[in-house]
Nucleic acid binder design. Structure first.
Lengths: 205, 205
DNA sequence: GTCTATATCACGATAGAC
DNA sequence: GTCTATCGTGATATAGAC
């Protein structure tokens, strides 16, 4: 027995608002997206929006929340195990990253992040923790294990992760920008594999 | 005999508009900056703005133009000469980049760039050509020379530049974000030097 | 070149009928 | 839960006096 808003009919409208808002915020940023546009796209009047959300800010925060919960940590495939493979681990990690880069919904997330990064403190913190720290942590563990197994030369694992990750991020930024203008990304897309090659040659023993 | 607008008095107003606009656009983005705010800060009425610029867009493009002409290529110190020094060249290049990162006006520029990157096609093109291509070109030349002199291992110079640059960019982004929130950047600021060390160890023969 | 005054518009949000 | 109607605000931009 559900006792929430819209008891028996499906909660379609609220979800539709969220879906439409996600697309619009991603494309136009916070200021560029108006409640008017959202309502129009959803197919209701502006005033009806306020039956579901207190105000525009509440919609945005809900969008931001949902967007970050998209799991980057894939299957949590035992790091201790896979890190032993050395180069293959990095190839796999990079592949996952590449897939995210070219995934449509993640592309929107990334765009929204970049647009609002300097305007929303909450988003900045999520960027640092979800985007950066999380990946550095995974990579650091892996590099540490590789060092223990004498696969790579000894270095600060955190620093190594930073070096490895920053290039992935920069490629992602460039590709997202290029796709935004419908430029071809074939040339740069092979860069991911080259990056792994270069990095591995730099650190392997 | 000047025959332009404001014949004998100084053209202070137009320059002041530009100066104020630069600060405001950098802080608030395009949508967040209103002609009202600009006028108020300058100390004139909104309508007076239109004696100097056709519209808001024209002001913004002028700001963007000026902001990119800030020369990264410093003294154009003969690359052929300095590249021979190998590691010292990279240290010098990175030092310049670090100075830019911590320079207040360049910090504003970078923030503006990040805010509007996905909203303004012209800015994207300027980013690609001025920000990326230019630096890749300088570094590629240097790496090529280093290879010729057997200072570093043989690789695609462009690719090497990409690898070297992307980390600098990522550090810059992180530092700018942290400074935005008044977080301490002492820990990350030494990363620049570590990056050069790591990279040099990766490529030197 | 600056001012006052105004036109026109889009925005976020609310009140109240259905 | 959605609608119509409306308010208040702040935005870009223009016309015309000084």
């Amino acid at each position: 027995m559900p006792e929430n808003t819209t008891p028996h009919k499906r909660t379609g409208t609220k979800q539709k608002i969220l879906k439409v808002s996600t697309a619009l915020f991603s494309e136009l940023g916070y200021k560029g997206t108006s409640v008017r546009k959202i309502a129009k796209e959803v197919g209701i009047r502006e005033s009806a929006i306020y039956n579901h959300y207190k105000n525009k800010e509440e919609i945005f925060l809900e969008v931001a929340k949902g967007i970050f919960s998209s799991p980057f940590s894939q299957g949590n495939t035992d790091i201790k195990e896979s890190a032993m493979k050395g180069k293959a681990f990095l190839q796999n990690f990079t592949m996952q990253y590449k897939l995210l880069t070219f995934d449509k919904s993640n592309e929107n997330m990334f765009r929204l992040l970049m647009i609002e990064l300097f305007q929303n403190k909450e988003l900045r913190e999520q960027f640092m923790s979800e985007f950066h720290d999380k990946n550095v942590k995974i990579l650091s563990e892996a590099f540490f294990i590789m060092m223990q197994n004498s696969l790579i030369r000894s270095q600060d694992p955190m620093m190594m992760s930073y070096e490895f990750l920053s290039t992935l991020f920069y490629m992602r930024l460039q590709i997202t920008l290029m796709r935004f203008d419908n430029d071809s990304t074939t040339a740069i897309s092979t860069q991911f594999e080259k990056h792994v090659e270069f990095f591995w040659e730099s650190v392997r023993i």
